[in-house]
Nucleic acid binder design. Structure first.
Lengths: 330, 330
DNA sequence: GTGAAAGCGCTAACAA
DNA sequence: TTGTTAGCGCTTTCAC
């Protein structure tokens, strides 16, 4: 069977296509009686407008693109969840595609978005993306791009991020306040800008506290975080606090805690940066600096709305503040 | 600026629109020379075909819909990840929308998919969805629907599931093999068919083992699973094994274990059904029956392909087998 | 209050 | 080998 169209309805009722179109939009010109008949028939025939025809005619689509390295990541999931919910609320559909951290796939995704004439794009870059020219070109077509989380260095673009510096500064302040003296701090991949900014602010905050012995580790996986933790707690001088830059690192460290039967917060404290899901899995719950994917999603979406409403000529980086959530682990 | 169109290219080159169209499709009719000129100019002008026009003209879109209760769920994430990757490979885009377990939102999503003239739909129902008539109507429009995970009771539809019966039967067999005598089994929401089938097979398998004392709990959240576990381990007759129907329940039970400092597998065993991510978070790792979202996604996608290729007249429920993964927790 | 007509960008049957 | 034409389903201006 084929979809109901305005033409079909107009033929059955013996009116013109434009009358049907107007009636269905509740146009004031159309008489109540005609309107009633048309709306009734449309309902009976399960009429749904063909979005493709509308987009073609009106030259704008209610579709947004969202490009992300991987769908299987709880931070991005909450980001997407927020964006999807907000989009649906205003009648936009979201086309989500994963790049697998491959710049070539990224270019391909961009092409698909262009072909689909999306109204805007949310993009989280792969660490290997050197060149954002393809993104910049979209400006000429009035397609706004909001970069999130992993954003480019360039200034002339829109980006939203976690306030990394402030967040890891807060974590460092907790360590100071709790009078920790021998801290193991585990960060992620050195090449990621997110690692760099978190590490830098962390060191900066602790720089005038020479009484704190600080050991920095870099883990590329949960397993590596486990191994690092394990190694340091086998030494005679055990750390009295562990800092974890991310959920991935936290789960690795906690597995080591369980393995070595380390009691926290008594024997040692632990603090993390997280969106809050994993810290609540443990008992006692982990104290963490909250970096919420939901909030970031909301922020990105409102920036998108600003662009879509024509205020496109600002180049701005917005950050969301992180807050300390006490769990009792330090 | 405005997008490049066939017309624009044809005007510049002084040829007809159809020549341009054919050249860009590498149609054999067009001379090599004309083809070269056209392709070059198209590239220079960043030409990308307008999908809306193509869809309108060809009456079919390369878009699939995927409806899921929530994006923030690791099982669904891996499902979506598999479906998205497979879709992209054959040039389809995925429109993901979350229902929030609200049947009204589900209806709305369906409407949007219909308006967008998607080629097919993957759907995971909310527990409250009583009536799948709206889905069945899509058959008339030749839009295949593949239900996954939470599927309707009806026979005349396509569905893919974890082999729930076999999976929970395997879990029960482990309990028997390990000679457990006092088992706490925590299941999910009673109204879900997934709970029903898992529970039924579990009970069935244990039915001729009257020496095993079995307590069934139902938890609607991780917190409730925690509370149930906590309560039962405060009794004098502590269980010697805990079975968790899902990750959500497992994490709740494990939090209780940590709180009560229960040593497993020594004091009590624990076994779960999971896709494997959460069981590996703990030490010792949790023994589980694997229910993989990726595999289910692949299966759903291949079923979709079958439908899209015209083999739509089968009503089938396919399941993927679950396997035991030993973690050392029981 | 309603209709006719043009056109969004593309494909494909038919003509030359 | 290339061009002409009609039409996909819709919106919107202009006319009556």
């Amino acid at each position: 069977m084929v979809n109901t169209t305005l033409k079909k309805i107009s033929e059955i009722l013996g009116v013109s296509i434009s009358t049907v179109s107007r009636a269905l939009k509740d146009h004031p010109d159309i008489s109540t009686e005609t309107k009633r008949k048309i709306v009734e028939l449309a309902q009976a025939l399960d009429y749904e407008p063909n979005i493709n025809a509308i987009n073609l005619r009106t030259r704008n689509s209610k579709v947004l693109g969202l490009m992300v390295p991987s769908l299987a990541n709880s931070f991005y999931d909450s980001f997407m969840s927020a964006v999807e919910a907000a989009s649906m609320k205003i009648g936009y559909a979201l086309v989500i595609m994963q790049s697998g951290d491959d710049p070539e796939v990224e270019r391909n995704i961009l092409k698909i978005y262009k072909q689909n004439r999306v109204s805007g794009i949310f993009a989280c870059l792969s660490p290997h993306t050197a060149d954002i020219e393809a993104f910049q070109k979209l400006k000429d077509l009035d397609i706004p791009v909001i970069f999130f989380d992993k954003v480019p260095q360039e200034d002339n673009c829109h980006k939203v991020c976690i306030a990394d510096e402030s967040a890891s500064e807060q974590a460092a302040r907790v360590l100071i306040a709790k009078k920790k003296k021998n801290v193991l701090a585990i960060f992620g991949n050195k090449n990621l800008s997110i690692t760099k900014s978190r590490l830098e602010a962390f060191l900066q905050t602790l720089s005038n506290h020479s009484d704190i012995k600080l050991t920095i580790g870099h883990a590329h996986s949960s397993q590596e975080a486990h191994d690092i933790t394990s190694a340091f707690f086998s030494e005679p001088q055990k750390p009295d606090a562990v800092f974890c830059m991310s959920d991935e690192i936290l789960t690795g460290a906690m597995k080591a805690f369980q393995e070595l039967k380390i009691n926290y917060p008594e024997e040692t404290g632990i603090i993390a940066m997280s969106d809050g899901y994993f810290p609540k899995l443990y008992h006692p719950e982990i104290t963490y600096i909250e970096t919420s994917g939901y909030k970031l999603g909301d922020l990105a979406f409102s920036m998108m709305m600003t662009c879509l409403n024509g205020n496109n000529n600002f180049n701005q980086k917005l950050s969301i503040d992180a807050a300390l959530v006490e769990g009792g682990s330090i």
